[in-house]
Simulated scan of single mutants.
Amino acid sequence: MELRQIKYFIAVAEELHFGKAAQRCHIAQPPLSQQIKRLEEELEVKLLERTSRRVSLTPEGEEFLVRCRDIQDRLTEAVACIQDMAQGLEGMLRIGFIGPASLSQLPMAIRAFREANPNIRLDFSAKSTTEQLPVLRSDRLDIAFVRLFGHDTTGLKSMLFLREPYVLAIPDGHHFSKKDRIDIRDLEGEPLIFNQRIAQPALYRSLIGSFHKAGFMPNIVQEVNTEQSTVALVSTGLGVALVPASSARDKRSGVSFKPLDGDLPQWEITALWKAKNESVILKKFIETLKEFQEIAEEPAIWPR
């Protein structure tokens, strides 16, 4: 069965006249009649009753007309859909992100993109950097927001989305509360809540190296795997913590944030996508991201 046979049958069924149907389909009447006959032979069902005076639908023909119209509507819809996809007007974008990205301008960028592209569906996945990279490479993500420290990014394109300094999170009532700024050397002996080594080994070494340069080893009392958990533990009074400046947007009671001076790496979030991904939707999203980048002027200490 061919799509043109469905088109011809719909025309005959609606016109109930082979001559008018042939004119509608812009073909001669004999070829049209032959196509309808072949269709009936293939189905082994009589669709039309023909006499010298009139053409009418059999019960099977009436049901087949309903199904053929549905096929035609779906085909029209499919064509419109793929044309919209080609223009980046419709489709899906799968976004992966690390938890701290939710405190950056990423939510605002996503909102702006959704408002400008209401017919594009967005699918979100919160995962660590290490978890996101293989998912991105296997085409189960279109773009990933990660924190890179020594990770293999072969075959991927990148855009720095956020660069900001570390600040010190302290519990209310801490003796640092009266200070405007904290020097890293002031942290000697302070109970410190720290990132887990296993989550980002290169970052862990870089931060520990900053304390070594300041002349002491940090007094780590607890290791955690997310910035949100870190701030939560600071609020309990367990210790102080180095956190990205954007963490101050988390208005958690019992915690305040102080600028931190010292030879520390910058805190960065990078957007990654496959170099071979030519999606128009992805390109439009990246253009939106550029409007919401937050990049401090001073360069990162850790080479990306």
Score class of each variant (00 low, 15 high):
E2P: 00
I6F: 00
I6V: 15
Y8I: 00
F9A: 00
I10E: 00
V12D: 02
E14R: 12
C25H: 09
H26G: 02
I27R: 10
Q35A: 15
K37L: 12
R38V: 00
L39V: 00
K46P: 08
L47V: 10
T51Q: 06
E60Q: 15
G61C: 13
F64V: 07
L65K: 12
L65A: 11
L65S: 11
D73G: 03
E77R: 15
M85H: 07
M85K: 12
Q87L: 14
G88R: 03
R94N: 08
P100K: 02
P100F: 00
A101Q: 11
L106N: 03
M108G: 05
A109H: 10
I110G: 08
R114A: 10
K127Y: 02
S128G: 13
S138Q: 14
D142C: 13
S158D: 08
S158P: 04
L162W: 13
V167H: 02
P171W: 02
S177A: 13
K178F: 05
D180T: 08
G189E: 08
I193A: 01
F194S: 03
N195K: 10
R197V: 06
Q200H: 07
L203I: 00
Y204L: 03
S206D: 15
S206Y: 09
L207V: 10
L207W: 12
F216A: 09
P218K: 04
P218G: 03
Q222H: 08
V231W: 00
A232G: 05
V234S: 09
S235M: 12
D250A: 08
R252E: 06
S256A: 13
P259A: 01
Q266P: 07
T270A: 03
L272I: 05
K274F: 05
K274H: 06
A275I: 04
K276I: 00
E278V: 04
I281V: 13
L282T: 04
K284V: 05
K284L: 07
L289V: 08
K290N: 09
F292T: 01
E294I: 01
W302N: 11
